[in-house]
Simulated scan of single mutants.
Amino acid sequence: MAVDVAVLIKEAQAQLAEQAVPNRFLDRLEAGRVPRAQLRALAGELYRLVRSDRRSFALLAARFPDAPAGDLFLAMAQGEGEALRLLLDFAAELEMEEWELAAYEPKPLAQAYPAYLTQTSLYGSRSDIALALLANVEESGAHYARVADALRSGYGFDEAAVGHFRFFADTPPELLDQATATLAAGLAAGDDPVEAVRTARLVHAYENAFWGALAEDAPAH
C-alpha cells in the first residue's frame, strides 16, 4: 500500500511534539546567564558536530547518488561546509582559534546526535534522514534563531558573529522540496516508513540531548 508522504510527515511531527522538553540552555542564554566559558563550549561542540555531519551527508550522497537523494545530500554536505566557515566567525568573537576548537574536549551526550547521524548515514535508508529533516526543521531552526537573537541582544555580538546560527535558522524551501521528493522516492522504492518515523524521533531526542548537555554546566541562577 502506498504511503502518503504528507500524512507521514504529520505523524512524525506529532510524535516529536509529544517528546518536547524545555530548552534550559536557551532559556538561560536569553536571560544573559550563560557565561563566556559556556559559549566557548558551545563553539567547541558545534565544531565537532558540523564536521561530523558534513562527512555523514557526503556519505549519504555516495550511497544514494541519483536524484533527488543525491542532490539533497550533496547540498546538505555543502551547507555544513558553509556553516563550518561561519562558525569560525563565532569562535573569533570568543577569541578562539581553530586549533582550540579542534582541541576542545567534547561532552559525550552533546555528541550523541552526530554519532547517531553517522550510524544512520551508514545503515539507514534515504527516507530516514529526509523525514528527520522535514519533521525537525521548524523546531531546530527556531532554536538557532533564539541563539542568534540572544547573542545579539544580550551579549553584544555583531551579525557576522552569529552568522552560523542564522544559517541554520532558515532552511531554503528548495532544500525542503528536495527532502520531500527524496522521501517520496524512497518510500516508493520500499523504504520502511516506521523506521523513518523512528529516525525522526531519535534525531529530535538527540538534538534535545545536545542542548541539555550544554545546560548541565550553565549556572541555574
Rank of each mutant, 00 (worst) to 15 (best):
A103V: 00
H221R: 12
E95T: 06
E45W: 05
E174V: 10
D158E: 10
G141W: 07
R36M: 11
D177G: 03
A142F: 03
P106F: 01
V137D: 14
E80L: 05
E159M: 10
Y116D: 08
A67I: 01
T180N: 04
R146K: 13
V50Y: 03
P173S: 09
A130T: 05
V197E: 10
E159L: 15
H221K: 08
P219W: 06
A41W: 02
A61V: 07
R201K: 10
A142G: 13
L26K: 02
A69V: 09
D66E: 15
F57A: 12
G32I: 10
G32T: 09
L29E: 03
A20G: 03
R51F: 01
D158V: 06
E138Y: 08
V203R: 13
Q119N: 02
L101C: 05
A205Q: 14
A215W: 04
S125P: 01
I9L: 11
A160T: 10
A112T: 11
A91C: 06
A161G: 07
A67N: 09
S56H: 12
T120M: 13
A75Q: 13
L131R: 02
R152K: 15
S56I: 01
D66M: 06
A142Q: 14
H221Q: 13
E80F: 08
L8Q: 07
V3W: 12
A161Q: 12
L26C: 06
A184F: 00
V5I: 13
Y47H: 15
E174D: 13
E18F: 03
P35E: 11
E159P: 00
L59I: 03
E195A: 15
A189I: 05
A132L: 09
A2L: 08
E80G: 03
A188R: 11
G32N: 09
L88H: 03
A20I: 02
R198M: 08
V21N: 02
L94H: 10
W211M: 08
P108H: 01
N136K: 05
K10P: 02
A200Y: 10
N23M: 14
P106C: 11
D177I: 08
D53N: 12
